[in-house]
Design a binder for these strands. Structure first.
Length: 665
RNA sequence: GGCUGCGUAGCUCAGUUGGUUAGAGCACAGCAUUCAUAAUGCUGAAGUCGUUGGUUCGAGUCCAACCGCAGCUACCA
C-alpha cells in the first residue's frame, strides 16, 4: 500500500472560486479518489493563499481586517469545493500558526547553512501610501517604445521587459502620486547553489517532459537569486531577526501545504507529518498545479525543501488552463463562471464528467465548449451508461423478483469489462483520464449493442428463453456495475446512488474483478438527469449580470460630491468624420465637432458600429479628459457609451435640439 | 523579441519505434427498434492530416522554413 499526500495549488484569499480553480481541484480529486479506491492511503490537503499586498489592499477596500476577510473567504471556498465533491481532508489557510512556525524554521535552517544573503534593492516607493510598490502597482511610459500607461514589468505594446525603475513618468496606481526611488535591504534565497540538484531533479520523472523542457530554459540560462522578502506594510509573516521585513507570499505559500497537513495530523490519530516529509520518507508527495506556477513548484520549492533537509516532491502534475468556447474566460462574455453561479443551476457532476473527458497528462489548455458540454454529458452518461441499468432492471424485477442470474451469460463480454480495469488503473494513475473515459464509454457502447442483439423484450414471455433473458439483463447490470466502479472517481454522487440501486457496499476498484451473481437489486430510479441547455445559458447570463453589478459598485458605489461631478465637462459633440484605424481591432478614429473646436477621439466601438453609421450623429463626450497618447495617435476625450463591450456597445445620444458644444449637466 | 506547447472530418479527440484505401465519439442523413430518462442498434455522408520545401522505395508520423493559436519571460497571486 502506498502512502500518498496530495495537494492542489492554493486559491487566492481575495477572490471567488471559479471554473479555473474547479478544473484543478476536480482533476486532483479524481486522482485522489482513484488512489483511495485502489486501496492506497491518500490524503488531500489544500489552503487559501492568504498573504500578500493584494489581500491587504482588498481588506482595506472592504473596510475590514485582513484576518476577518480571509476567514470568511476560506469558509466560502471550502464549502464550494465540497459541493463539487472535492474531498479535501483539510482546507486550511496559509495564515496559520503552523505555517508561521514552519516557514520561519525553514528560513532559519537555510540562513544557517549559507543559503540566503541580503542585498540592497532600489525600488519605487509611494510616500502617500507609505509602501514599496510591486510592479503591477506602477504605471508609466515604456522605456523602449514610449507607449504610455504600461505596468512596471513589461510593455503590452512592444513586449519589452524591464525594471519598474526604468519607466518614464512613473506613477503609483494606488494613489496616483509620483513614486520615489528608495533603497531597502532585501533577503535572497541563493537558488543558484541548487543548480546541479535541480538539473538532476527535473530530469527525473518528477515532472512532465514539456515542463522539463521549460525548466531547462531557466537552468541553462543561469538561476538568479530569489528575493524572498518584502518591506512592510505587508500582510504576511515577519522574517526572524529583522525589523519590518516580511516573507514574500511565495515563500510561505508552498510551506502552507506542509502546514495544512500538519494541522490535519494534529486532529488525526496516528498520522505523523514527519513520515511524509522527512528526507528519507518512502511516502509520496504529489502537487497538482497550473502551468503558470511551474517555476515556483519545480525550482524554488524543491530547492527550499532540499536546502532545509526535507524530502522533495515525488511528482508535480502540471495542467493547462481552461478556456470557454475557444477563448480565455471573459467576464463580459459571461464565461468567467464562478462556482456559486454554476451551483445555482447545474449539477456539479456534469462539470466533473466533462472535465474528466478532457483531461490528459500534458499541459495543453482545455477548452470547455458549452454545446459540447451538454451533448457529451447527456449522450454518454444518460444515453449510454445509465441507460444500461435502466433498460435491464425492469426485466430483472418483472420476471425474476429482482434477482440476478447465477452465472455469466457471455464470458467474453464480462472478461472484457472486467479486465479493462488494469488498463484504466494505469490511465488514471498517469492522469490520462480522458482516454480512460473513452474506454469506458466504448464499453458502454458494446454493452448496449449486446443487449440489442439479444432482444430480451422479445423473449421475456417465452418460457423456454427465460434463462437467457435473465442472463442477458444480469450481465448488463454487471457491466453497469463495472462502469460505475470505473466512473466512481469522477462521479462519486452518482456512484453512491448506483450502489444503493445495486444494494452493495461502497465499491472499490477490485470489485470489478468479479460479477454479482444470484444477488438481489433494488428497483431502478433515475441516477442522472439530462442537462438542459437553457440552464447553461442562465449561468452565462447571470455571470454577465454579476459583473455588471460589480462594475457599477466599483464605479458608482463610492459616492461623489456634486463638486466632484462638476469637474467633469460633458459636452454634446457631432461626429464629423469616422474612420477605421489600421492595425486596431476595436478602435475607430472619430473627428468630433464640440462647438468651437474640433478634436480627435479614439473610441473602442469598432465591433459595434460602422464608421459610416456614425457620421453626422450627436454623441456625448467627456471634453476635459486628459489627452491620452495611444499607439495610433492622441485621443482628446472620451465618447460615452453603455454595454459590456464587443458588439454590445450603445452610444449615448441627446434628444433632438441639442447642439454641438452644449454642456451636459 | 526569446522560449515552451499545440494546429488531423462541423465539434472533441485517437493515430504505437515512418508502411497497404487516415480512425472513434458527438452533431448530421436514412433505416430498424420500442426494454429504457425521445434512451438503443444498423447504414451512410463528411478530412488535399496548418502551408511550403526536404529526407525516404514510402511521411499525419522525421528535418527545415513559414503561418496561426495558447502560454511563459522569475519581486501579480
Amino acid at each position: 500500500m502506498r502512502r500518498i499526500l496530495v495537494t492542489s495549488a492554493l486559491p487566492n484569499a481575495n477572490g471567488a472560486i471559479h471554473l479555473g480553480h474547479l478544473f484543478e481541484h476536480i482533476l486532483t480529486d479524481i486522482w485522489v479518489r482513484f488512489q483511495r479506491m485502489a486501496g492506497n492511503e491518500c490524503y488531500y490537503v489544500c489552503a487559501d493563499d492568504a498573504h500578500g499586498t493584494a489581500t491587504m489592499l482588498a481588506a482595506e477596500h472592504l473596510g475590514t481586517t485582513a484576518a476577518a476577510m480571509i476567514e470568511t473567504l476560506r469558509r466560502e471556498h471550502a464549502e464550494e469545493f465540497g459541493r463539487f465533491h472535492v474531498g479535501h481532508d483539510n482546507y486550511y489557510s496559509t495564515h496559520s500558526p503552523e505555517n508561521e512556525r514552519l516557514t520561519r524554521a525553514i528560513y532559519e535552517r537555510l540562513a544557517e547553512d549559507g543559503r540566503t544573503f541580503t542585498a540592497d534593492v532600489e525600488q519605487l516607493y509611494d510616500p502617500e501610501r507609505k509602501l514599496f510598490l510591486a510592479d503591477r502597482f506602477v504605471k508609466g511610459t515604456c522605456p523602449r517604445c514610449g507607449a504610455d500607461d504600461q505596468y512596471g514589468d513589461n510593455c503590452q505594446e512592444c513586449g519589452a521587459t524591464y525594471d519598474a525603475t526604468e519607466l518614464g513618468n512613473p506613477r503609483s496606481t494606488l494613489s496616483d502620486n509620483t513614486p520615489q526611488l528608495r533603497s531597502s535591504d532585501h533577503y535572497f534565497f541563493d537558488l543558484a547553489q541548487f543548480t546541479d540538484f535541480l538539473k538532476e531533479w527535473t530530469a527525473s520523472d518528477a515532472v512532465q517532459p514539456e515542463v522539463a523542457n521549460k525548466l531547462g530554459e531557466w537552468l541553462t540560462g543561469g538561476l538568479k537569486a530569489w528575493d524572498i522578502s518584502r518591506d512592510g506594510p505587508y500582510f504576511g509573516f515577519t522574517i526572524p531577526g529583522t525589523e519590518g521585513k516580511y516573507f514574500y507570499v511565495w515563500m510561505d505559500a508552498p510551506v502552507g501545504y506542509m502546514a495544512s497537513f500538519e494541522n490535519l495530523c494534529d486532529r488525526s490519530e496516528g498520522l505523523d507529518p514527519d513520515d511524509f516529509w522527512r528526507a528519507d520518507s518512502d511516502a509520496e508527495v504529489h502537487h497538482f498545479i497550473g502551468k503558470d506556477i511551474i517555476n515556483f513548484h519545480c525550482l524554488f520549492w524543491p530547492a527550499v525543501l532540499q536546502g532545509a533537509g526535507y524530502r522533495t516532491p515525488t511528482k508535480v502534475h502540471t495542467h493547462g488552463f481552461v478556456t470557454v468556447d475557444g477563448a480565455k474566460m471573459s467576464k463580459s462574455r459571461g464565461t468567467f463562471i464562478n462556482a456559486s453561479t454554476y451551483l445555482k443551476h447545474l449539477d456539479p457532476e456534469y462539470l466533473r464528467y466533462y472535465f474528466a473527458t478532457k483531461l490528459s497528462a500534458n499541459t495543453d489548455d482545455v477548452d470547455m465548449q458549452l454545446d459540447d458540454f451538454v451533448q457529451r454529458v447527456n449522450s454518454d452518461l444518460v444515453g449510454k451508461v445509465v441507460n444500461i441499468a435502466s433498460r435491464c432492471a425492469g426485466f430483472i424485477h418483472r420476471g425474476f423478483d429482482g434477482t440476478l442470474a447465477e452465472g455469466v451469460h457471455d464470458a467474453e463480454l464480462w472478461a472484457a469489462a472486467s479486465n479493462v480495469r488494469h488498463e484504466l488503473a494505469d490511465l488514471y494513475e498517469r492522469g490520462d483520464v480522458g482516454r480512460a473515459v473513452r474506454q469506458i464509454t466504448a464499453l458502454a457502447d458494446r454493452t448496449n449493442q449486446y443487449i440489442a442483439e439479444h432482444e430480451p423484450w422479445k423473449h421475456v414471455n417465452d418460457p423456454d428463453r427465460r434463462d437467457e433473458v435473465q442472463g442477458v439483463c444480469s450481465l448488463g447490470i454487471n457491466v453497469f456495475r463495472a462502469l460505475v466502479v470505473y466512473l466512481k472517481p469522477i462521479l462519486p454522487a452518482m456512484a453512491a446512488k448506483a450502489e444503493a440501486f445495486l444494494k452493495v457496499e461502497p465499491l472499490a476498484w477490485e470489485d470489478a474483478a468479479e460479477p454479482l451473481v444470484a444477488h438481489e437489486i433494488d428497483r431502478f430510479k433515475p441516477l442522472f438527469t439530462r442537462i438542459d441547455r437553457k440552464d447553461v445559458d442562465k449561468v452565462v447570463a447571470e455571470t454577465v449580470a454579476e459583473v455588471e453589478a460589480e462594475d457599477a459598485e466599483d464605479q458608482g458605489g463610492a459616492e461623489v460630491s456634486i463638486d466632484d461631478f462638476g469637474k467633469i465637462d460633458l459636452r454634446i459633440a457631432k461626429v464629423v468624420d469616422a474612420n477605421f484605424v489600421d492595425g486596431a481591432d476595436k478602435l475607430l478614429e472619430l473627428r468630433l465637432d464640440v462647438g468651437d473646436d474640433a478634436r480627435t477621439v479614439f473610441a473602442g466601438v469598432r465591433e459595434a458600429y460602422h464608421p459610416g453609421a456614425l457620421v453626422g450623429r450627436l454623441v456625448v463626450v467627456v471634453a476635459n479628459l486628459a489627452p491620452r497618447k495611444m499607439r495610433f495617435g492622441t485621443s482628446e476625450g472620451m465618447v460615452l457609451a453603455a454595454g459590456p463591450g464587443g458588439e454590445d456597445i450603445f452610444l449615448v445620444s441627446p434628444d433632438a435640439g441639442a447642439e454641438p458644444g452644449m454642456r451636459v449637466t
